[in-house]
Amino acid sequence: MLPGLEGGFVMNAKLEADSEPLMWLGLCELRVMNDRRWPWLVLVPQRPGAEEVHDLTPLDQAMLTFETNMVAQALKKATGCTKINTGALGNVVRQLHIHIVARFEGDANWPGPVWGHGMREPYKRSDLHGFCEKIRTSL
């Protein structure tokens, strides 16, 4: 059984449709946002009903911080980016999830946010696989 399923966790349909699974961490499923304009990862804590970080137990909050930092460091190492953007907005998808985005000066919409800018550009399967391997290696 996958982590989280025994407790009634169900992935939000939009999150599932917009991203691809990469791997399971201790608390979160790590996913890749399917938009090649930015190297963009998403952490989804496997806790039913969690919408905000403060909905998690203190131990889960600590684990989320650890996993967020670990993934951000791996993304920076894998991409050599200028800046890492980390955010948990939840205005469209309320289920708690953390965006970790690698940014480069001059990328699409720099220095503005990635949300709501232009049309999503899905990865080619081979490019997605290559990016996922870089992240796994960096972790």
Rank of each mutant, 00 (worst) to 15 (best):
M1G: 13
M1D: 11
G4L: 04
L5C: 00
G8M: 04
G8F: 06
A13W: 14
E16K: 13
D18F: 10
S19Y: 03
P21R: 07
W24S: 14
G26V: 01
G26T: 04
L30P: 01
M33S: 07
R37I: 03
P39Q: 02
L41H: 12
L41G: 09
L43R: 08
V44S: 07
P45L: 02
P45R: 05
A50M: 05
V53A: 14
H54M: 14
L56K: 04
P58H: 05
A62Q: 15
F66C: 10
T68W: 14
N69M: 09
N69D: 09
V71F: 10
Q73S: 11
K76D: 09
K77T: 05
G80F: 06
N85F: 00
A88I: 04
G90T: 01
N91G: 08
V93N: 12
Q95V: 03
I98S: 07
H99E: 05
I100W: 10
I100D: 09
V101R: 09
R103H: 06
F104C: 01
G106N: 09
G106L: 04
A108G: 01
P111H: 02
G112L: 07
G116Y: 10
G116N: 09
G118D: 05
G118H: 07
P122W: 11
R125N: 11
R125S: 08
S126A: 14
D127H: 14
D127W: 13
L128Q: 12
F131D: 03
K134M: 11
I135T: 02
S138E: 15
